[in-house]
Design a binder for these strands. Structure first.
Lengths: 335, 335
DNA sequence: GTGAAAGCGCTAACAA
DNA sequence: TTGTTAGCGCTTTCAC
């Protein structure tokens, strides 16, 4: 690999001058500049980012930590982020925690060692003090999707509570009284907020919460599939009339379970979901859902990061909440 | 951020000694070692990877360049790679080219500047000489999914030609004679190979190739949707009896188009695909496909990379071909 | 407008 | 077994 020194020697200038030409931050005479540029081309020289990073304390790398790399929702967020930051020369390092707190912490350490400029974190831990440590060490973190109450940091999240409240209220308006839920990991803020919105909607409409209808799908398609099956089996004599899945993966798991048990949606049981399933266009019935704008979340997070690193922002904490809207299709029966 | 120097001062040793303790590559007395370890903990010291990288010429970063970050197929490959390399301390940098040669080249340059240890490249360009330049510069590249004939580099690919040949032969055995195809970008090796297998199967069974049934879906769901619609419209009086989609995305696009035009699979038209669609469990009819093992491709690529960087491999070029199998379900009508 | 030189944080000869 | 030191490739201050 050719270095700045080689360029300098060949062009008969100092390394400082070459550096100035590359960065264009100090005056260089036209003549010298041209010569240097020519030499750079001739030698095919490209500056070593590692050396630059060491010197300038800036890596142009952003760590993105999510619970599940195979969930389209997070991939969409990633695309949103990438579209915003990549034009400014930033690269994304992707990490998947598999919803494991230890792994999450290990990954954050690794990213810290790598001196990434920023971390976008969809956390699945509730150990805010451990995250706080990273922040205290000077790590820049923006929480995405999830947030932790006691954590002093920027975040871009959805309006989980209100959106769920509205969706469940709609379901109740359709006459449903036996309402089940497939929850995500309640240790994660999104799952908790969604469930809270769910419960509040029931309460406000004087519908009783039937514990036997509530299952823990752990934000996991397979788990949801299994738990929904068990739930249906144990409630065969009195099934819920509608099910709320707290995310897309779990909605898919639930659909597969219902299909296997020959329960038709919405005739035998209705289903609604927070977030849209894959290939929604092809699957009957079309699900009534809360539509998430994952790409937008990514973009907002990217923009926020850019603003922060450019210093064009007051030092206060920014909390962005993306509104979600309900899309009514035909998976809820009117009773 | 605390540095090795601060640790050394506080522990009353030289930075060299601290380095030795961290890396455990040279003898250090128990006493000194313990003291250093203690100081490291006390100060919360963590080595700066950037500085290490500069010194050691090793970044523990792997660039992964794919045409489309939102396609599950590539995400699965990524998961496979990650599962293999992450335990050894490597991180993945993800890049999406959007099937754009310029962007691909730009990304490769950026990764080169970042001195990533390896690049896993699913290329969508055919400019092998430009890629060759990177290799000549000393960049380590493993081609995944795609490959370029004239390029001297390792690769992990599928058996596109033979798998397609078998699938189309099966379709012909079911009595089909009017056979259409939704091709990927024929500039990409996978698309070309699949189409070649397609053509050869027709030829060997004396079936004529009807150009009007062949469309270019550009490996793109939307394009496939549009092109299939047009193709159906212009062949209304004599439709193909079966369609072959060269990847999952395009199969989805084709399904949506057929559904919109009220053509039932397989009654009105049969459909087969290279690679499985999303949420296959829920979609009727179940598609007859060539099953791809994307995670396995990723793992193989990861393992190959690890072997190469450890030097435990002869310097020759390794070409891994993953066999694909046909999964017969019920999207092909027997005629 | 240009060059010399220090230094970012680390590792690895070499010396002791 | 330990310390001294050079140097990885770059940027930037300071002098000229």
């Amino acid at each position: 690999m050719v270095t700045i020194k080689q360029v300098a020697e060949k062009a008969n200038v100092s390394t400082a001058t070459v550096s100035r030409v590359i960065n264009g931050n100090y005056p260089v005479s036209e003549k010298v500049k041209n010569k240097v540029i020519e030499t750079i081309k001739e030698l095919g020289y490209r500056p070593n980012s590692i050396a630059r990073s060491l010197k300038c304390n800036k890596t142009y790398m952003v760590g993105m930590v999510v619970p599940d790399i195979s969930n389209n929702y997070f991939m969409d967020i990633a695309r949103g982020v990438e579209s915003v930051i990549s034009p400014l020369g930033y690269s994304l390092i992707f990490c998947s925690t598999d919803e494991n707190t230890d792994k999450e912490l290990r990954l954050l350490n690794a990213l810290n060692d790598k001196r990434v400029d920023y971390v976008l974190l969809a956390s699945s831990t509730q150990e805010d003090h451990k995250l706080q440590k990273f922040i205290n060490q000077g790590m820049n973190i923006i929480m995405i999707d999830t947030s932790l109450e006691n954590l002093q940091t920027d975040s871009v999240v959805e309006d989980n509570y209100n959106a769920t409240y509205k969706l469940i209220s709609y379901v109740i308006d359709q006459g449903h009284k036996r309402i089940g839920a497939v929850n995500g990991l309640l240790s994660v803020s999104t799952a908790k907020e969604r469930y809270n919105g769910f419960c509040k909607a029931l309460e406000d409409h004087d519908i009783s919460l039937e514990q036997s209808y509530i299952v823990n799908g752990a934000y996991n398609r397979k788990k949801s599939y299994e738990e929904v099956k068990l739930m249906i089996q144990r409630n065969m004599n009195k099934l819920p009339t509608v099910l709320f899945a707290a995310n897309n993966d779990m909605a898919e798991g639930a659909m597969i379970a219902l299909k296997e048990m020959n329960l038709k949606i919405p005739d035998d049981i209705s289903l609604v979901s927070f977030g849209d399933i894959n290939l929604a266009e092809l699957i009957e019935p079309r699900l009534t859902i809360i539509s998430q704008n994952a790409v937008l979340i990514g973009q907002k997070a990217g923009e926020l990061m850019l603003k922060k690193v450019s210093g064009n922002s007051e030092n206060n904490i920014t909390k962005v909440t993306i509104p979600s809207e309900i899309i009514i299709r035909n998976s809820v029966k009117s009773i």
